[in-house]
Design a protein around this nucleic acid. Structure first.
Length: 135
DNA sequence: GCCAACGTTGGC
DNA sequence: GCCAACGTTGGC
């Protein structure tokens, strides 16, 4: 089991919309590093859902439902892939970027070290810490 | 609105 | 292969 974090601008596709949809194909990733992480995802992996830009907090947990497959929104033959994500549960208390920065246990998290990356792996301990902060 | 970080493109 | 120019993301 692996752990991940994905970002979405709430104005573009919010957690609430994701829940209302009951899941979504995580399409539109156009960065090779992020694509490589998508390709490593496996069904059952857990994914933190982070609202970037206007909200700047982790708001929920999603689950990977399918292995990576060609991104239907990209040109045929392109290297881009998508996975299907389903909502698992919202965090009782969203965990803000400020809160994450304050916690020593999260000092090495990809969210802080590489702020522009939109799909990134998390260590199990980092995932657990954020769940704990969000409980 | 600004700026840092980073990726991509294209000229040489 | 290098680097300047430019575009995008995302925090502040």
């Amino acid at each position: 089991m692996n752990y991940w974090l994905v970002k979405s601008e709430p104005e573009a596709y919010s957690w609430d919309t994701f829940v209302r949809d009951g899941g979504t194909d995580w399409t539109g990733v156009r960065n090779y590093q992020a694509r490589n992480f998508l390709q490593q995802m496996q069904p059952g992996d857990l994914v933190l859902y982070y609202h970037s830009v206007s909200d700047k907090q982790v708001v929920g947990v999603a689950q990977v439902a399918t292995p990576a497959a060609p991104d239907a929104t990209a040109e045929a033959g392109s290297p881009w892939v998508a996975v299907h994500l389903q909502p698992q549960q919202p965090l009782a208390q969203p965990v803000s970027l400020v809160r994450i920065k304050q916690d020593e246990r999260l000092s090495q998290i990809g969210l802080l070290r590489q702020s522009r990356l939109s799909v990134m792996p998390l260590k199990a301990a980092e995932f657990d810490t954020i769940l704990e902060l969000g409980a």
